[in-house]
Amino acid sequence: MSTFFQQLLNGIQLGSIYALIALGYTMVYGIVRLINFAHGDFFMIGAYAAYGLYYALGRLFGAGNPGANYLVLFLLVLGGAMLAGGFAAVTANRVAYKPLRDKPRLSSLITAIGVSMFIEYFFSALPAIGPSFRGFPEVFPKTIIKIGTASVSNYVIIDVAVAATLMVVLTLLVKFSKVGKAMRAVSQDKEAAKLMGINIETIIGVTFLIGGAFAGVAGLLSGLTYPRIFPYMGILPGLKAFIAAVLGGIGNIPGAMLGSYIMGIAETYANAANSLIGEGIAFAILIVVLLIRPQGILGEKTADKI
């Protein structure tokens, strides 16, 4: 029973990280109908930014010594990861996706594959980063809390809390702010939104910014939780988060969250059963969803008018 519970917690933790990535996928898809292949790489950039920032600032805050101000340090590192992820996303949009806005959708998709490869290989080619693994520091000292027979690390709580906070903020933003309303308008009908005086490109930029920032945070959390980072670390989580977004209904924000938690939990249990199943479960989910309910759990069916 306790391993069951333990796995559930691990699944929720993993799901929180997926959710932060999946939101970017889903928001960008909702607005520009692009599967941004490079999104997983913004996650990686976030992790490296956090890593760099920690070593740059750690001593200032007395990391490793008693009485160090970990909370402020953590928040700074978090902010850095957000900025880096957001910046990367906005740049990719400006340089590579924007010029292709009126071209067939597959052009942007292939370009996104190119951007993704570029980021990955450029990072591993840079001498300062290199292709190999790096251990990720404990930005926040790890402690184990025992609940009954199960033990929970405070990282579980941090991951879930950070993700939950951001998701609540995002939901409120999309529901009530002016930008959020504009985002919804653009995703529903670009032409109408333009006629209403909304600057489409600005809204697309904001969407990339938020999506990239969230992915950056996910990178930091992933670094904390699975303390190993490398330039290709974004590929698999990116793909799985994308599948989670499809599962929930791509373009749908609550769907991305739901899909991510299902995905995180399913993967954790599958991995516990057999590592081959663990590797394949995401694709199995994808195939089943696409064949049975391609619009996803919360997505709505759209029909092309003939």
Binding site: I110, T111, I113, V115, M117, F118, F122, A125
Partner: peptide, 16 residues
């Protein structure tokens, strides 16, 4: 890795 950097840039340029 630089070889792959060149390749990916090539892909982006072709598409753009």
């Amino acid at each position: 890795e630089w070889r792959m950097v060149v390749y990916s840039l090539l892909l982006i340029i072709i598409m753009l």
